[in-house]
């Protein structure tokens, strides 16, 4: 058991190390997210009241697109240099290694988005009482975004030109997260109950964390064959 956890930890640490080697690339999603979200107020009239109504959707759509940025390349380097062959042949369950890699990606891509979200929310005039719900929703929803993006990346890793395909593949998996994540914030804005959407997001998160590493591992194995 320990050897399995050690192996998963090694995968996790390797991802972080690789991100540190290329800091510019690693911070791209965060920069993209901030720029995208802050473009909306620029496009609206100053102090437009509509901004506040759109804020939940803006934050969530920006997070979604940021999570998709570069997800296509997630497994490509490891497939091309033969690393994934070694993962497959190691005496450790392959889905666990894939899960560890995706978990590291969550920390690298999504965690900064959550940290930056309150600032973005303030810039979008979101009411303070809704910010907590926004963060909680992002906490539950971003693993869904990252893991389903990873699954789509695994599905297309053997296909040469899959860049345009990825949004279609992940849309069905990501749009429930968007609906309930933004829905919870909207409910909080007008004082409605936020429990339902948050519970649903949590359910989606648990389901994604459980099933998608298996599915992604299967898709990768298929692409390698």
């Amino acid at each position: 058991m320990n050897a399995m956890l050690d192996a998963a930890w090694a995968v996790f640490v390797r991802e972080l190390r690789l991100a540190l080697r290329r800091p510019a690339e690693a911070t791209q999603p965060l920069v993209f997210y901030c720029v995208l979200a802050l473009l909306f107020p620029l496009g609206l009239a100053a102090q437009d009241v509509g901004l506040r109504a759109f804020a939940p959707a803006i934050v969530w759509v920006s997070a979604l697109l940021a999570a998709l940025l570069g997800i296509e390349r997630l497994f490509r380097a490891d497939v091309d240099d033969g690393t994934l062959e070694q993962w497959l042949l190691a005496d450790v369950p392959f889905p666990m290694l894939v899960g560890a890699k995706l978990a590291a990606q969550w920390l690298l891509i999504a965690a900064p988005l959550i940290v930056a979200a309150p600032l973005i929310a303030l810039a979008l005039n979101l009411q303070p009482q809704a910010i907590g719900v926004l963060l909680l929703g992002l906490l539950f929803g971003t693993p869904v975004l990252v893991f389903s993006g990873g699954f789509a990346a695994a599905l297309t890793v053997g296909a040469p030109r899959a860049g345009l395909l990825i949004p279609i593949l992940v849309l069905p998996m990501m749009c429930p997260a968007l609906i309930f994540g933004a829905g919870a914030v909207r409910a909080a804005q007008v004082g409605l109950s936020v429990e339902g959407p948050l519970y649903f997001l949590a359910a989606m998160m648990v389901l994604s964390l459980t099933l998608l590493p298996w599915a992604a591992a299967g898709a990768l194995r298929n692409a390698l064959e």
């Binding site: 690789l18 380097a77 490891d78 091309d80 240099d81 033969g82």
Partner: peptide, 13 residues
């Protein structure tokens, strides 16, 4: 030991 024609070495490490 498996040693494929690709060396399984990440270029950034």
């Amino acid at each position: 030991h498996w040693l494929g024609h690709r060396s399984a070495l990440n270029a950034a490490l």
